[in-house]
């Protein structure tokens, strides 16, 4: 019997992402069909055109973009995918826009597990569903081993700004109340304590969440809210400073009102880090006229994302561009911008 020599056919079923998955050929197609399309589909994406052609409702268009490079990509309370959806949704929502459409660009390191990629895609689809947005266009690129850290995601988003709403970081007025939607530092500490090499264990979960639903309800009862920001990198301290500088007003807050979860406090003490400098991914800082504060607070507290909302201070006529905290002891100190990366310290 003669055995016919078989031409070796290329391997089509991979466990990990290969350079060829990003080369536009058959493997690229198989990546789309196997990992993305089963989980993310809608009338725009399913056309597989190079662009999504969108019908937008009337109103001003809000447009934003953000890149997500978090490490680790799976962390307690979320994934890089959920972060990429919620972060961009929140950037639209804090401008008073109803988030509608997202793009998603993936930069994947060669050798990254396809199963993990799929898990992340599923988490993105679920986050988009919860936030009521559609991922309508996307892109994947594969880079060589070591050229990126597992997976980077960029998302851009489009939303329509509500009529009659004018939210801007330049709108703060003396007398405004400053509301914080909940505990500070959860996301940053969840990331930091789950990183290798720091010998930590904690049950701290990221607060990663879409705020668009809560924000819409807040604007329903108080369309005249002056400003909103989600205090991500740099934490509440950075956000308050940006607001104070942009509006050229002072902000005064009370130390005893700032909510911090017990475990986050513990981790911050251990690492010598100020919770006000730690990133959040599902929190909101709101500046609103004092007369509207109570009803905004009530609405916020009716949402899971705003259950612990509290007034932490007010906008004042003093020290323009500066944030000052009244300590538990009755003294005052400046709340400054954090300087770059938060480093665990021994001293």
């Amino acid at each position: 019997m003669t055995v016919l020599p078989l031409c070796p056919t290329p391997i089509m079923q991979h466990e990990t992402v290969q350079m060829a998955h990003g080369a536009g050929g058959r493997l690229s197609q198989s990546l789309m069909q196997r990992v993305f399309m089963p989980h993310i589909h809608n009338s725009y994406l399913d056309l597989l055109d190079d662009q999504a052609k969108l019908d937008l409702p009337p109103g001003m268009v809000a447009f934003t973009t953000d890149s997500y490079v978090v490490s680790p990509i799976f962390f307690p309370g979320g994934t890089i995918g959920e972060l990429a959806v919620n972060g961009t949704v929140n950037d639209l929502a804090v401008g008073g826009a109803r988030p509608l459409y997202l793009s998603a660009g993936f930069i994947i390191e060669e050798g990254f597990s396809l199963a993990e990629l799929e898990t992340i895609v599923i988490s993105m689809a679920e986050a988009a569903r919860k936030a009521g947005v559609m991922i309508v266009t996307g892109d994947t690129k594969v880079v060589g081993k070591g050229q990126c850290d597992k997976l980077f995601i960029n998302t851009s988003g489009i939303g329509i700004v509500r009529e009659g709403v004018n939210l801007s970081c330049r709108n703060l007025h003396p007398g405004d109340s400053i509301i914080l939607s909940g505990t500070v530092g959860d996301h940053g500490m969840a990331i930091m304590t789950s990183r290798e090499g720091l010998s930590f264990q904690s049950r701290i979960k990221s607060d990663c969440a879409a705020l668009s639903g809560m924000i819409a309800a807040m604007l329903d009862v108080a369309p005249a809210i002056h400003a909103m920001r989600d205090p991500t990198r740099g934490g509440v301290a950075a956000t308050l400073n940006e607001l104070a500088v942009s509006s050229n007003v002072g902000i005064s807050i009370n130390e005893t009102t700032i909510p911090v979860k017990a475990e986050v406090r513990g981790a911050c003490e251990l690492l010598g880090i100020d919770p006000l400098h730690v990133a959040n991914e599902g929190k909101l800082v709101v500046a609103v006229a004092a007369v509207d504060a109570a009803k905004v607070l009530e609405v916020m507290r009716s949402f899971a994302e705003g259950r612990d909302a509290v007034i932490i201070g007010s906008v004042v006529n003093l020290h323009p561009g500066m944030v000052v905290m009244r300590t538990a002891f009755g003294s005052q100190r400046i709340i400054d911008l954090p300087l770059g990366e938060q480093l665990p310290r021994i001293c």
Binding site: T327, F329, G330, S331, Q332, R333
Partner: peptide, 9 residues
């Protein structure tokens, strides 16, 4: 001391 503002108090 500085964080708690004891120099003021």
């Amino acid at each position: 001391i500085m964080r708690n503002g004891f120099d003021q108090l």
